[in-house]
């Protein structure tokens, strides 16, 4: 059931308004995380250090964009205003995006990309595994598929972080710098979810993932001979639409075609 007032003509090139119930907001949060991180990984295409890693990054990007598509479609159905995956991805402004600040941070060097992937996936993998028991059947189905993908992303980024950290002096310094630079964004991973959705067992509450995340992060950082930053991650605002300057640039790139040529297909 659509909660938006009807009769407002939406030009295709302008942003759409979303009737954001808690369930719709949840779908958009997770879809935006996946789309923005997937887009970031796709930026490596043609630039990766070696062919094997180029394909690995593109594969993971495609996994994430696939998750985003299913979540947007589900958000559109839950919203009930007829918005499809493309409209939700291409016709919302930065302030309407609900992704974590962590996933929109620039690729930087290879160590930064791997550290960003690792810090996010160490949260997303247990979150999806727990969401497989969701009371919402579609979300449970998406979780069952996503969890297999994130399990591999976790293995891939862990193995790389260990080798970068425990590698050469240069790779160690870059890996530590990446962890230090991204650490302030990690607190946002554990922002509490909507209490009603948690009570209805639609999804697990992010703060309950902290134990699993700490266990993974501490084990891999130790094996990588990297130091865990002491301060807590305090930068947040992404879930409320307050983003770093980087998201606007991503959306310019991502949305240009649909904004300029509404409904274009090929």
């Amino acid at each position: 059931m659509c909660l938006m007032k009807s009769g407002i003509c939406e030009m295709a090139t302008t942003s759409i308004s979303i009737a954001e119930t808690p369930l719709v907001a949840l779908m958009l949060e997770r879809a935006d995380d996946a789309l923005i991180l997937g887009h970031r990984l796709s930026e490596w295409t043609g630039h990766a250090p070696m062919l094997e890693e180029e394909l690995a990054l593109a594969n993971m990007g495609l996994d994430l964009i696939g998750q985003a598509r299913e979540l947007y479609t589900m958000a559109g159905i839950a919203e009930g205003c007829g918005h499809d995956e493309d409209q939700l991805a291409y016709l919302r402004d930065a302030r309407q995006y609900r992704n974590l600040l962590l996933v929109e941070q620039p690729n930087g060097d290879f160590a930064t990309t791997i550290a960003r992937q690792f810090l996010y996936i160490a949260f997303a993998d247990p979150w999806w595994r727990s969401t497989m028991a969701s009371s919402h059947p579609t979300l449970a189905a998406i979780a069952a598929k996503a969890e297999k993908e994130t399990a591999y992303h976790l293995r891939h980024s862990s193995e790389w972080l260990i080798r970068l950290g425990d590698g050469t002096e240069e790779s160690h310094a870059r890996a530590q710098a990446a962890i230090d630079a991204l650490w302030p964004y990690t607190g946002e991973l554990f922002e509490p979810g909507n209490p009603d959705l948690i009570a209805q067992r639609v999804c697990p509450d992010p703060p309950t993932m902290r134990v699993a995340w700490n266990r993974t992060v501490d084990a891999i950082l130790a094996e990588a001979t990297l130091t865990r930053p002491s301060a807590d991650g305090i930068l947040r605002g992404g879930r409320a639409g307050r983003h770093t300057e980087h998201l606007g640039h991503i959306l310019t790139d991502l949305q240009y075609l649909q904004r300029s040529f509404p409904g274009a297909t090929w």
């Binding site: 062919l51 094997e52 890693e53 690995a56 594969n59 293995r155 891939h156 193995e159 080798r163």
Partner: peptide, 10 residues
């Protein structure tokens, strides 16, 4: 280990 991962990805 990385060889197995790369083989999987390629």
């Amino acid at each position: 280990t990385m060889a197995l991962q790369n083989a999987r990805d390629v």
